[in-house]
Design a protein around this nucleic acid. Structure first.
Length: 462
RNA sequence: GGCACCAUAGCCAAGCGGUAAGGCAGAGGCCUGCAAAGCCUUUACCCCCGGUUCAAAUCCGGGUGGUGCCUCCA
């Protein structure tokens, strides 16, 4: 039985989907910049959730948005659109920018073994759906028009703030958002913004030329693909107070019913004990980690070692540990792949049950990983290898293609290095230890590690 | 100021009432000419003070400390 922590109730709840096909909406990237490792942690969480559901026998219908318009820089509803800003700064069209960062995003998530949701929805492909949505809200009296936008009237929506449990009035007192005099309530948010003539992204609407607000896209697209009520909605914790609160308000106002059954949020990744964000400039990208010698999956492992609802402090010390651990896990995998022992059915069942219990307990991956390690200490057997591959359906660490460290050693050793190694070997055969050690140091200097065995040696790039 | 969350070994991290998983690092040993790698062994009474209980890291109260949100952010 799968239990998931629902942000709305603040409790672990038994997961009961509406049908065998589970509907999931995941807040995706705003493609105006590179995704950083903090963003990617949230998608790893989404991936683990999807893998767990699939493992439990559900079919998935997942939607992820690509936000390529409408995400303002400020909730004061007067900030510049992110895409427009990036476009201006990079002197490219918004379409070019979106296409570029979208492709980088998919490259990143592929490198991290994050499965792509079944439906990828670009905001700009759904302008009509959003307009229809806004019309619906206007008809029902939940929205009103001002000189600059169509706003959602939160005063008409009972229960605004139920997800974040923030008392709106308390917040307003110290709000840094400037009051827009035409708004009925300071927290009313734009559903549709009217654009002036030189705004580069705009579409015709019943209210003249304009562009959608950010929040409306998720509601409109999830309605289109997943219907009135979806099973699970995922996102980062930062979305709880504004974005998801607004989604709830819009969608429940329009549909008149609960529209999301389970709200799941991934915690933030910290860096050096503090917040990581693009605006603070303390972010890393996956390709930057690769340049430093950390494979993407080492980063995935790093994330898997902590529960998705706990803050995770990113440090290179931690990433080093993850990299070493993953390497050893691969080596163990290889041992079991060629294992000659037999593992009893009871033993296999024990580990399998433990693992399944762990993942079904609100995706307790750190615990599940521990179970894998413990299991791998059993005598090597092909049965354990097969079971590990089952586990890897959740973990996504590519255990099936695990290689022994020396299997992957590249044959491209320069001739001069080979020559020194040969020389050293003969010195060693002749028990000329001083010379042998001297030559080994030379090899070390050149960046090669020499490993002796009984009657041969191997060279490895260090 | 308001609202949350968190506090477990040098580091990361599970555990959520019955006397502390796992990983990294470290230490000792095996192996090695010496190393490296590998293998074996080994390292905690759970922030503090009260309380509840036969029993608490786990529940309650009060502290202290940290982080996040209340502004765009995964």
């Amino acid at each position: 039985m799968l239990k998931l922590y629902n942000t709305l109730s603040r409790e672990k709840e038994e997961f009961k989907p509406q049908a065998l096909e589970v509907t999931i909406y995941s807040c995706g990237p705003t493609v105006y910049n590179y995704a950083h490792i903090g963003n990617l942690r949230t998608y790893i969480f989404m991936d683990i959730l999807r893998r767990t559901l699939a493992f439990d026998g559900y079919n998935l219908k997942g939607v992820m948005n690509i936000t390529d318009v409408g995400h303002l820089l400020s909730d004061a509803d007067d900030g510049e659109d992110k895409m427009v800003k990036a476009s201006r700064e990079m002197k490219k069209t918004p379409e070019e920018i979106a296409a570029f960062y979208t492709s980088v995003f998919f490259k990143d998530i592929k490198a991290l073994n994050i499965g792509t949701p079944e439906i990828i929805a670009k905001a700009t492909d759904h302008i009509q759906e959003m307009i229809d949505y806004v019309c619906g809200l206007l008809e029902k009296g939940f929205a009103y028009e001002t000189s600059d936008a169509i706003y959602f009237d939160i005063g008409k929506f009972e229960g605004y703030g139920k997800l974040s449990r923030l008392n709106l009035d308390d917040q307003i007192a110290g709000a840094r958002v400037e009051v827009n005099s035409e708004k009925r309530h300071p927290a009313d948010f734009a559903l549709w913004k009217k654009a002036d003539k030189n705004h580069i992204m705009q579409w015709a609407s019943p209210w003249g030329m304009g562009y959608p607000g950010w929040h409306i896209e998720c509601s409109a697209m999830s309605k289109k693909y997943l219907g009135k009520t979806l099973d699970i909605h995922t996102g980062g914790v930062d979305h709880i107070p504004v974005h998801h609160e607004n989604e709830i308000a819009q969608s429940e106002a329009l549909e008149g019913c609960k529209t999301v059954n389970y709200w799941l949020h991934g915690e933030f990744m910290l860096v050096d004990g503090g917040k990581m964000s693009k605006s603070l400039g303390n972010t890393y990208r996956i390709d930057q980690l690769e340049e430093k010698g950390y494979p993407p999956l080492a980063f995935r492992y790093f994330c898997l070692n902590a529960h998705y609802r706990k803050k995770l402090n990113f440090t290179f010390e931690g990433l080093d540990a993850a990299k070493v651990s993953l390497g050893r896990l691969y080596a163990l995998t290889c041992k079991h792949r060629g294992g000659a022992n037999k593992t009893s059915a009871e033993t296999l069942k024990k580990y399998s049950d433990e693992f399944v219990d762990a993942i079904n307990d609100d995706l307790n991956i750190p615990l599940a990983l521990g179970i894998l390690w413990t299991m791998f200490k059993e005598p090597e057997s092909k049965e354990l290898y097969s079971l590990a591959l089952e586990f890897d359906k959740i973990l996504g660490l590519s255990l099936a293609t695990a290689k022994q460290p020396d299997e992957s050693a590249e044959p491209e050793i320069p001739e001069n290095v080979k020559a020194i190694a040969e020389e050293r070997w003969s010195a060693r055969i002749n028990k000329n230890w001083a010379e042998s050690d001297r030559l080994r140091n030379e090899l070390t200097q050149l960046g090669y590690l020499v490993i002796d065995s009984k009657d041969a040696y191997t060279l490895k790039k260090s």
